[in-house]
Design a protein around this nucleic acid. Structure first.
Lengths: 165, 165
DNA sequence: CTCTTTGTTCGGAACGTTCCGAACAGCATA
DNA sequence: TATGCTGTTCGGAACGTTCCGAACAAAGAG
């Protein structure tokens, strides 16, 4: 059973493979493991050992992507940052845009290759497959939401009703 | 309606965002638009303007990932390369392993945070969501295969029966 | 107003990755 | 054996990205 620090480093590696920067990934890890109601930039700088300029860029990148949100408690001097309510939903929707992008890439290819049958068949398969995924992925997300709601609030009102296990 | 060369460059950019190198992505583009039964390394070098050493590395990377396959026609002096039959299926399965990886990352986090309720709830949600996706994604792939088979070979035997449109 | 703190922007340095050219190994042919 | 071609491996250069430190803008406290 590892430490929180190890988990934060793992998160940095994992999210880096998704296109984020290393420090952005580590920030996500800190916020995932956060026990309070968010962290502030100076605290994250000290904890992760990065300059506040890098932290500023990372936090803005994450905020721009909709993964975290910035808020300032009343009368506070510094911003706080916490994960968006549906971080994971947003991550999945980002995947979906990737699907549509590849469908469009296939379309571009179809416009370029002309009438050659073999190439057309390949690219049409690619286009149709990614279009199918882009169409079905949101429904999968809906099914997940439904299943989660069903487990979290079963009609018999069992002990599982508490969303905080 | 763009040229094939433009499509190849676009493919290089798109697949680069998926973790491949730029030249590997361009090779994929060439093979997607290929009208014959595969291309050889010297031809790809001349067409893309890269050294044969880079081409060797790129082709081996793609072959190792199962995206292309190498074969040598009888009595031929050089290898030929073509896309695997189910390139896209493999790409999707690679995505699936990414899901399970994130579920495991959440598990690691659960082992690290201890009993803090808010952090546990977040990480359990993350774990369950990615596990759900890892479980349902193969079924989505199966549904696609079924739909494609139904469209390509309808029971009435219409003109769409030819897989090469 | 002055001082402190927070947050952003910018230029330069450090890092990792990708690519090229050269050298090498394998193989078939003459 | 000698020769030409294919493919791989390796060291160094070039490139893009990320990060840091310094300078700057904004806002509140004394």
């Amino acid at each position: 059973m590892g430490t929180v620090e190890e988990f934060v480093e793992s998160a940095g590696l994992y999210f880096e493979r998704l296109g984020l920067s290393r420090t952005s990934g580590r920030v996500i890890g800190c916020l995932l493991a956060d026990t309070g109601e968010g962290l502030d930039a100076p605290g994250l700088c000290g904890r992760l050992g990065v300059a506040k300029s890098s932290m500023s860029v990372a936090l803005r990148q994450l905020e721009h992507g909709g993964l975290i949100e910035r808020y300032r408690p009343p009368r506070a001097r510094r911003d706080h940052h916490r994960l968006t309510e549906d971080v994971f939903g947003r991550a999945f929707r980002a995947k979906m845009t990737e699907f549509t992008a590849f469908a469009e890439l296939a379309e571009q290819g179809l416009g370029a290759v002309g009438g050659h049958p073999a190439a057309r068949a390949r690219l049409e398969l690619m286009r149709d497959m990614y279009a199918f995924m882009a169409r079905e992925f949101p429904r999968l997300l809906d099914r997940w939401e439904a299943e989660r709601a069903g487990v979290a609030r079963p009609p018999d009102g069992s002990a599982a009703a508490d969303p905080l296990r």
